[in-house]
């Protein structure tokens, strides 16, 4: 009987507390959002993009067929002119993704792309996007680029910079066609195209 009474009292008091707490929380959240919006400004754009590319490995799942063996490294490829200047290597050095070592490779031409899991398409390839998409269609390679409208043109993840913040746009149809799975948590952050 005592337990029933206790839980009833607890429920009532919780409801009272919750109502007053909501306003506090809302105020705190709005304050934090505004104060933190400028913190990415100091980071060099491509350093951040390098980190993001590395972290995509955690939020995307590749089909088993994408790897020949369990200990095969996860390969991050750069197609076209490298804008990172070694930042990507710095990020992935001594890191693993999904228990695999990470390799960074550079490809000058779309034809060279082999054994690649994440491919960053440099702005130097801006005019050849649809060609690249077509060439890699159906292969489990996550296509990432900061070329404008890259996802809309059949790419998978596009970086856009707005208000000095790097934002993501994902073409879920392209991702699905490639046999990849993007975590819903990632999708929640990004602007989703297609589907």
């Amino acid at each position: 009987m005592a337990a029933v009474i206790i839980s009833w009292i607890r429920g009532v008091s919780r409801a009272i507390l919750a109502r007053s707490r909501i306003w506090l929380v809302a105020a705190a959240v709005s304050l934090l959002v505004f104060s933190s919006s400028g913190s990415a400004q100091g980071t060099r754009e491509y350093d951040l993009k390098a980190v993001f590319i590395f972290r995509f490995a955690s939020f995307v799942e590749w089909p088993d067929s994408a790897f020949r063996s369990p200990d095969e490294p996860l390969v991050i490829g750069i197609l076209g002119k490298d804008p990172f200047g070694g930042a990507l290597e710095d990020v992935v050095r001594s890191e693993t993704a999904r228990n695999r070592p990470i390799q960074v490779r550079r490809f000058a031409d779309i034809q060279d792309v082999r054994d690649c899991h994440i491919l960053f398409v440099s702005r130097s390839e801006a005019g050849r996007v649809s060609q690249i998409v077509r060439a890699l269609h159906g292969r489990p390679i996550l296509l990432v680029s900061d070329i404008d409208r890259f996802p809309a043109e059949g790419g998978m993840i596009g970086f856009t910079t707005a208000e000095s913040r790097v934002q993501l746009a994902i073409n879920v149809a392209s991702v699905r066609d490639a046999g990849l799975t993007v975590s819903s948590k990632l999708l929640r952050l990004a602007r989703v195209i297609g589907g």
Binding site: V33, L48, V166
Partner: peptide, 14 residues
Amino acid sequence: TAAIAFESRFDAQR
């Protein structure tokens, strides 16, 4: 996780 990974403070807040 994603909010930290991709520096979305708004999402983290949410």
